[in-house]
Design a protein around this nucleic acid. Sequence first.
DNA 1: GGAGATTTCCCCACATTTCCCCACTTGGCG
DNA 2: CGCCAAGTGGGGAAATGTGGGGAAATCTCC
Lengths: 147, 147
Amino acid sequence: MTSFKGQAQYSVDKKGRVAIPAKMRASLNPEAVGTFTMTRGFEPCIYLYPLDEWQRKESEYQSLNTYNRNARHLIRSILMWAEEVVLDGQGRIGLSKALIEYAGLSDRALIIGTMDRIEIWDPEVFGKFLSEQPDDHEALAESVMGS
Amino acid sequence: MTSFKGQAQYSVDKKGRVAIPAKMRASLNPEAVGTFTMTRGFEPCIYLYPLDEWQRKESEYQSLNTYNRNARHLIRSILMWAEEVVLDGQGRIGLSKALIEYAGLSDRALIIGTMDRIEIWDPEVFGKFLSEQPDDHEALAESVMGS
DNA sequence: GGAGATTTCCCCACATTTCCCCACTTGGCG
DNA sequence: CGCCAAGTGGGGAAATGTGGGGAAATCTCC
């Protein structure tokens, strides 16, 4: 299982390209190297799943009953933002305009590794997001992990 | 299994033609390239199935009991709108007037990939549709997927 | 049944975007 | 001190989206 961690702040060039940190590229499964699926995050950021992790997600959606209205709506609201991308020779990906707008990205990007995915944030948006969350990560840990 | 994803906004020309995004064409099964069946969506949009997926749908309908009144009605209400189309040399399809009217399309079309089919929406109609739905896709995800 | 008018379909042409490749700079390591 | 790896930027070729013209098929009206 892939396990991304760490953070880095890279530039977004005029063509909407962002480099993926070498350390994260190194922790990819051999068969998933190079191909990612990016999509809209629950938070105002972009989620980036390596090929193998995304296939797991997708098979979850495939098992849903598409004659159910809510299921259709969910699939649509996730997949319409999804896009498969391949790293270029320099280890970068190209972000789509729709996702750049959704995440509020401009010329710098904060790359965060979170277990099975990579998150791409605008630094300012991220700072604002943090300040709105209760920053007591001790209490948070207790509420999620504690029994 | 085909798996369409992503979104794009293309133009509908005066002849009622709409281009299918190259990314979606690329994810077609080799034996299904070029031929689609379009029909009325459950939502106010057009559903577009590649050949192989449509055959699967048809066999679903064939297995229904046609002595059941509702089954007969369902089959009729789907198939009377269905139409087989072939991509032209530029990767476009021609929409029928009946479906254009049903989906409320004018000069722009929002193309959305949702797993086994492609949906074609009028951008305004789609915006209106979204505003009527609970757009909290985090809560929706939790209710459909969460355990 | 036939001629004209209309629609449909196929092909060509253009402009823009996208993608791929090459080159430069900086910092770390041997 | 020099080499290699990593991040950044840009140029050129190919692919993609868009519009329109003309031939073939279809329809309509006489």
